[in-house]
Structures are given as structure tokens and as C-alpha cells.
Amino acid sequence: MSEAAIVIEHVARRFGALEAVRGATLTVERGEIFGLVGPDGAGKTTLMRMLAGVLRPDSGRITLEGIDVAADPERAKTALGYMPQRFGLYEDLTVDENAFFYGELFDVPRAEYRERVTRLLGAAGLAAFGRRLAGQLSGGMKQKLGLVCALIHTPKVLLLDEPTTGVDPVSRRDFWALLYQLREQGVTIVMSTAYMDEAQRCSRLALLHAGEVRECATPAALKRRLPGALLAIAGSDPRAIRDALADAPGVQGTLLMGDRVHVRVDDGGLRGPELEARLAERALAHAPFETVEPGIEDVFVALVGGAA
């Protein structure tokens, strides 16, 4: 049997004149946490909705656990759990009532339901909140309840569309702890994210831009593909530093990172002194340059083009 949980072959989807996804081809192996990374409008949500069978592709084919999603979406739904950006919790129902509703929706046998929901609510830290209305939960707790509901029928594949957007850092950490537990249990996870620190936790990443898959590899492999060297410069006016260096010879891209500027150059040893001189000419105070390891955000900007 193939180790692929999901196979996406030349998939495209158009909305009028907008080509939201163009010729996407990807394979997701069983037990992976696979990340879709890209800016707003890159096609992440459209691709996720096609994986879930909510949208039909205009062309191409998606198979999930050997099931053709477009040809047999109802059968595919039994193998997957889908948590969209705005998960459909019922805020006037309690935690227990929401979980029960999704158990009934997926025909979970009553004899198995209680054990499953007790285990899932316990793992999510929600066991003590069964009688609380979903509308009274914090953002992070709502997301964890959404995950419980998406898992109530023990899917083999879990699809998460930016599940931690707007969630506080502690809740994000707890959410990721749950994802790691699921991976250990053999669940395949596909998630889209706008957080680059989360992207680095994925087994592999697909970088999407303007509806196309530009790159697909492990985070470490993507970092190795970054051309040239990466210099970090800290100063009191990082925007002015970025603007001063953006068009300097040998500079291939710049990116603001808090109070620092990441500058991608063709040759760190050669360009470092030149950039120092340029900043001195403009009287821009800064700390000494450092050569740093690129992050996923640096790689994304370099590979898809543009500066930020």
C-alpha cells in the first residue's frame, strides 16, 4: 500500500477571472504534519476546501486515503476531519452539547462516544468545562473544542485552516501539543498557517504564491535553498536602514524583523563592509552586522520574490 495519505495532481480552481489555484501537485505522506504557507490570496483556503470536498476542482484530481474526493466526497468525509478558519461551533450550546452534536452528525456509535469524548476533552484541557456555553469560551478554548469536534469520528486525516489565528501564545502552544499527540497516534495533519514559527514545526512545507506551489520541502531543506548570505542589522530606525540598503549593489532582498533588518546579499564577506560604509554615509546608527541563519519568512520572501 502506498504511504501517501493525500495525492494532489494538477489541481486548478477558478472563481470567474481569478485563478485561485493553478496546477497544484503535492503528495502528503501518512503521519506528516504538512504545512501550507503563503500570504492572503495565495490559494491556501481554496486548496484546503477542495481537499475537504467542499469545493470541486475545475481540473485535476485529489485522492485522500485512496478515495477520489471529487468523485466520492461523502466517503472521503468519513476519513477526514476538517476545521475551517471559522469552525461551526454553536455558541448557545455547551461544550458537551457541541461534542455530542458532532458525534451524532458523524454517526459515532453511542457505545464508543463517551470514551472518545472523555479522552478528547481531557487531552484538550476542557474536561472541567463541559457545561459551559461555547460562546463563553476564550478564543483558544474555542479552537480546542473545534479540534475535539473535528476528531470525534477518529479521522485518518485532519485538515486545519489557520487554526491558531488570533489565539494567544499559551493556547497556541497547547494546541500544538495536541497536534503532536495526534501525529504520534498516526493521524496525518495538513494545516495552513500565517505564523512562520509554526511553519518551522511542520514536517514539510509547501510555499504558495498567487495560486501556485512554488516550493515543497522540509523547513531545513528550504533554508538551505536560500541563495547568498543573510545579514542582520539592528538599529534605532530599522525602516530607514532597510530603505538605505534596499538598492545597494549585491543586495537581493530586505525584510523587517522587529528592530532588525535582514538583508540578503550575494556575498557576505564582500558586501558587509560596503553596506557599513553606506549606512555611515547616511549617519544611520546601527549595531555590528551579524551573519544569521535564515528563517522560513526569509526563505519565503526570497523564493517568491519581493521585499517587505
Rank of each mutant, 00 (worst) to 15 (best):
A17H: 12
P73Y: 03
E74W: 10
L137H: 14
A248S: 15
G135L: 03
G31M: 06
H10W: 03
R214E: 09
P169I: 01
V28I: 15
E293R: 14
A79N: 08
V261L: 02
A128S: 13
R30E: 15
L18V: 15
M257H: 13
Q136M: 13
S192F: 00
D197R: 04
A76R: 13
V21G: 00
G81A: 10
L231I: 03
R239N: 04
V167W: 02
L36V: 07
R282W: 00
D168A: 11
Q200I: 03
A12E: 11
L159F: 14
L55P: 04
G250Q: 13
L137D: 14
L160I: 08
T154Y: 10
L178Y: 08
A111R: 12
S59G: 14
V292P: 08
I6E: 10
V95K: 02
D266E: 15
D107S: 12
K142A: 01
Y180T: 11
V299Y: 06
R264K: 08
E97Y: 03
S236K: 12
L133A: 12
D237V: 03
E65W: 02
P227D: 03
V11Q: 02
A127W: 02
L26P: 07
K156F: 08
Y180C: 01
E115R: 13
A24E: 09
F101K: 11
A210W: 03
V304D: 05
V265T: 10
A244G: 10
V187E: 01
R75M: 11
